[in-house]
Computed example of a mutant assay.
Amino acid sequence: MALVVFLRGVNVGGHKTFRPSVLARDLSDYDVVNVGAAGTFVVRKPGSRVRLRTALLRRLPFKAEVVLCDGRDLMRLETENPFGSEAPPSDVVRFVSILSKTAAVRAPLPVTFPPHGEWLVRVIAVEGQFVFGMYRRHMKTIGYLGQIDELCGVAATTRNWNTINAILRILKGQVSKGR
Rank of each mutant, 00 (worst) to 15 (best):
E65L: 02
K63S: 01
P88T: 09
V50Q: 14
E86C: 13
E86F: 09
P82H: 09
F62K: 05
R49K: 14
L68G: 10
L68T: 05
S48G: 00
P46W: 03
A55K: 12
M75E: 10
F83L: 03
R72C: 09
V67T: 01
R51S: 14
E80S: 11
R58M: 13
F83V: 08
F62I: 02
L60R: 06
G47M: 04
L52M: 03
L77E: 00
E65W: 06
E65I: 11
L57P: 14
A64C: 01
R49W: 10
R51K: 10
V66L: 10
R49H: 10
P89L: 00
R58C: 00
R49G: 14
D91C: 00
S85H: 12
L74Q: 00
N81S: 05
N81L: 00
D73G: 00
T79Q: 14
S48I: 08
R51I: 04
V66Q: 04
V66A: 08
R51A: 11
R58F: 07
K63E: 14
A87R: 08
D91N: 14
R59D: 07
V42E: 12
G47K: 01
P82K: 12
R49E: 15
V42A: 06
L57E: 10
L77V: 08
R53T: 15
V67N: 04
T54P: 12
R72S: 10
P82C: 10
V66D: 09
